[in-house]
Design a protein around this nucleic acid. Structure first.
Length: 842
RNA sequence: GGGAUGGUGGUGGAAUCGGCAGACACAGCAGACUUAAAAUCUGCAGUCCGAAAGGACGUCCGGGUUCGAGUCCCGGCCAUCCCA
């Protein structure tokens, strides 16, 4: 039922209430209105997506981690998504707007350790609270499609996808030095190490050699890079970050012989032109050639190398490559230059990493900064082989590495060539000799998904003494995560649960042990957008027909912090699905991407430790949800960082109160037909259409600058006040009042619905079409002609629109100030922007 | 060092195509209403000169293109993010 008689704020006394009522209509009681409509919308399932969309629009917001409480920063993201969803619905699209929970992960486990709460219980109560809060801020999700990634019915399909990756050779277990966080006691993917520290707890990451599960995302490196070009609907910033992250470099892989052995040491370089400047070869202390070197070096050298390797064993990549001083040790043996056949000393160093590239680099001190430092420190010769094109003669001694391209010197028969030409020629020569070939190297590493954690998807593999590594068959899925596991923070929890890991081999029936690692939670967020399409399907992770109907995601909204991890993994998965024939059409999942900005408070990020969190519940109680939504949309363009201020939101509270009063006025006037006589009435009708046009264009252009639209709505209210003062019975006023609920519906859905029903409508305003802007009503009937003399404004003349060039000229030359600045002369030239501007050039 | 994005009043921002810089809002000031305050309503408001009319300057700095530049080009400075 419509809320026809909302009581005003109960706190105030009855006498006061009557006094207010006599003077003006009831004040806007946002608390009662907002609560009542939220209940009714949810009962009527207003926002369920169509089962047979004709103009589909898949709008997706990144699924949140259920951390407990939403603050106004989260609300900014969801308010934007909701405004877009509501606009698109009112513009006649079949909108799919689902929501779910990225429910596995560390914080639940940490809560278990610190407070003894079961991770499942903790997660579920957080989800319940956050779902309530999403309802509180008036969002229009289709909750019938809700997914929760820690439900067996969801993670079962994680395991299913893992098995398909396994069969394709894209998932495999191997021993490798990995990033180990000593605080969280787990390994981290490369993407989760930020400046050498754990992305969650900020502790320095160590290196350990462990057998771990990897996904071979590197097999897709070239396509992930090349297809960034297809993503025109993505911010350039994000594409650039992915380009950097994938880090393609073209060069040569070549090898040096090792004197006195048959061994060869391979190196990769993008600077083959500097090959004659090589004065040492640097290898990682873990390099596989070292055992071979033992045969030709002294016992003392061998022992020194072992000690050096031992000292670096647990040092992180960051420490070795950046924090520590560059150190090294001459092995006592020599490499043989592939072209000059010279003997080049082989050094073991801390700054070359075994798992990067080939684990060895050619040292060219004259043309590489790191090599220069290293050579300088260890008395290694520096041989300059590239000079600038304008190099003086004789050459001054090098004070620092010359890293740019130039012309070759002292390089055998390549001397005199430019760097670019020499790179090609030297590569060709190496290829002919069989000691090198063109090669492309990527910075991207394989994605490490093993976690020694409880609260994640169990990896569906068992280890059988007889059969070895055996995948769990599809019909035995899901491998359930056991309940009631004691979580102490010591070691991997599942290794302490024999009921879980003791099993039988699916192949031979013999005794076997389950994998006790769980998956990185980015696994489930790499494909969840497909699960929304058929969330209860128990035969497949998603229904192919539904995928064909709804994919791709038309608009994805989420934070820029996911530019490399989530967004790269999701692209990788989708390409795999596409290659497997499970999805059709484009092999990119997200057509358009929008990063909303942060909300700061007191110029700092909101955090519990700073004590500056602005919660949703308090804000809804104090100012109301519509005011909060309007503020978040109005304060900045959505992609910018905004600052939460109590002053700022009072402007939106005022807006709602004015809106309420202006639409609730008792006036006998019938709404006009938009053809008004008085100029302030025409201006008011115009303001209605300008606002409608702005909302429509901000949505369809995908710029989403609703801050501008809301400014137009402010102007509309100002225009209403103007007319009201002149003629409270104006039909134009009644017209504007009838349009406003429709205009504000996507932004302030509650007040819009209440006003709509009070105006006598029975159905929801949110199912109505958005007002169609009429250009003829937007056109001005009086325009200002700006007259410039030599580009400086000398007059503004009010005139009719559609003025001809000659009329404009006549008008301008009748203006005293214009004539004064022309100083008696006739303009030599003039430029006319019809109806706007005339520039006279003397 | 490389890449991306940005820099406009006291503040957030507007100007979407090269054509009136500062819409709209916050904060401020003045007035109306009120015993008073709050709320509300009305008005003022880039800087400088001027009584005013009007003029000069003005979108980080310096150049350039153009009849005309916040917008395009070149160089620099600063900020944020990503990669080294």
């Amino acid at each position: 039922m419509p809320l026809f008689h909302v009581e005003c704020a109960q706190r105030k006394g009855a006498a006061r209430r009557f006094a207010i009522r006599r003077r003006m209509p009831e004040p806007y009681d946002f608390r009662a209105v907002e609560r009542a409509w939220q209940e009714r919308w949810s009962k009527e399932r207003l926002y369920a997506a169509s089962s047979a969309p004709s103009r589909k629009y898949y709008l997706l917001e990144m699924l949140p981690y259920p951390s407990g409480d939403l603050h106004v920063g989260h609300a900014k993201n969801y308010t934007l998504g909701d405004a877009v969803a509501r606009m698109m619905r009112m513009l006649g699209h079949d909108v799919l707007h689902p929501m779910g929970w990225d429910a596995f992960g560390l914080p639940a486990e940490n809560a278990a350790i610190q407070r003894g709460i079961d991770p499942a219980t903790w997660t579920k109560s957080n989800i319940a609270n956050m779902k309530r809060q999403l309802g509180l801020i008036g969002t229009s999700y289709d909750w019938s499609r809700e997914i929760t990634t820690c439900d067996p019915e969801y993670y079962r399909w994680n395991q299913w996808i893992f098995l398909r990756l396994y069969e394709s050779g894209l998932a495999s277990k191997r021993e490798a030095p990995v990033n180990w966080c000593p605080h969280d006691r787990t390994v981290l993917a490369n993407e989760q190490v930020v400046d050498g520290r754990c992305w969650r707890c900020n502790n320095l990451v160590e290196r350990r050699n462990l057998a771990q599960w990897f996904l071979r995302i590197t097999a897709y490196a070239d396509r992930l890079l090349a297809d960034l070009e297809k993503l025109g609907g993505w911010p350039e910033r994000t594409r650039a970050m992915q380009r950097n992250w994938i880090g393609r470099s073209e060069g040569v892989e070549l090898s040096f012989g090792v004197a006195g052995t048959d061994a060869r040491v391979a190196v990769f370089t993008t600077r083959a032109d500097t090959l004659f400047g090589v004065t040492f070869v640097a290898i990682a202390p873990e390099h596989p050639v070292i055992p071979t070197l033992r045969g030709v070096i002294s016992k003392k050298n061998a022992a020194a190398i072992d000690a050096f390797a031992e000292s670096l064993r647990s040092k992180s990549e960051l420490e070795r490559t950046s924090l520590m001083e560059k150190t090294g040790l001459f092995t006592g043996t020599y490499a043989v230059h592939p072209l000059s056949q010279e003997r080049i000393p082989i050094w073991v160093t801390n700054y070359v990493l075994a798992e990067y590239g080939t684990g060895a680099v050619m040292g060219v001190p004259a043309h590489d900064e790191r090599d220069f430092d290293f050579a300088h420190k260890h008395g290694i010769p520096i041989a300059q082989v590239i000079v600038p094109h304008d190099a003086p003669s004789p050459l001054p001694p090098l004070r620092e590495a010359f890293v740019e391209d130039g012309r070759l010197i002292a390089s055998d028969d390549f001397t005199g060539m430019t760097s670019a030409r020499a790179r090609a020629a030297i590569t060709q020569r190496l290829e002919a000799l069989g000691t090198g070939r063109p090669s492309v190297q990527y910075r991207l590493r394989d994605w490490l998904i093993s976690r020694q954690r409880y609260w994640g998807t169990p990896i569906p593999i068992v280890y059988c003494e007889r059969c070895g590594e055996v995948p769990v068959p599809d019909d035995a899925l899901p491998v359930l995560l056991p309940a009631n596991v004691s979580i102490t923070g010591e070691g991997a929890p599942l290794t302490l649960v024999p009921e879980f890991f003791q099993t039988t081999c699916p192949r031979c029936g013999g005794a076997a042990r389950r994998e006790t690692d769980t998956m990185d939670t980015f696994f489930e967020s790499s494909w969840y957008y497909l699960r929304y399409l058929s969330p209860r399907d128990d035969r497949a992770p998603w229904n192919a027909d539904e995928a064909e109907r709804w994919m791709n995601v038309d608009q994805y909204i989420g934070g820029a912090e996911h530019a490399t991890m989530h967004l790269l993994y999701a692209r990788f998965f989708y390409k795999f699905f596409h290659d497997s024939g499970w999805v059709k059409g484009s092999d990119e999942p997200f057509e358009r991407l929008f990063h909303q900005g942060f909300v700061l408070h007191e110029s700092e990020k909101m955090s519990k430790s700073r004590g500056n969190v602005v919660g949703i519940d308090e804000t809804a109680e104090t100012y109301g949800v519509d005011a909060m939504r309007l503020f978040l949309l109005a304060v900045t363009p959505p992609e910018d960082t905004s600052d939460w201020t109590d002053d700022g939101i009072t402007g939106r509270v005022r807006f709602l109160n004015r809106l309420w009063r202006l639409c609730q006025r008792e006036s006998g006037a019938r709404p006009s037909d938009g053809r008004e006589e008085a100029s302030n009435e025409r201006a008011l009708v115009r303001a209605v259409h300008v606002a409608a046009k702005s909302a429509r264009e901000e949505t369809l252009s995908r710029r989403f600058h609703y801050n501008v639209t809301i400014a137009k709505l402010d102007e509309l209210l100002n225009a209403m006040s103007d007319v009201e003062r002149a003629d409270p019975q104006s039909p134009a006023l009644a017209y504007a009042a009838s349009m406003l609920p429709l205009l504000v519906a996507p932004f302030a859905p509650h007040v819009a619905e209440e006003l709509w029903h009070r105006a006598g409508h029975d159905t929801s305003v949110h199912l109505e079409p958005y007002p169609e802007p009429d250009e003829s009503l937007i056109a001005l009937d009086e325009v200002t002609l700006v007259v410039q003399v030599n580009g400086k404004i000398r007059a503004r003349i009010a005139t009719r629109p559609g003025l001809s060039e000659q009329d404009a000229l006549d008008l301008a030359l009748g203006d005293a100030n214009v004539l004064a600045h022309l100083d008696g002369a006739q303009p030599r030239k003039h430029f006319y922007v019809p109806g706007k501007l005339l520039n006279l050039v003397r």
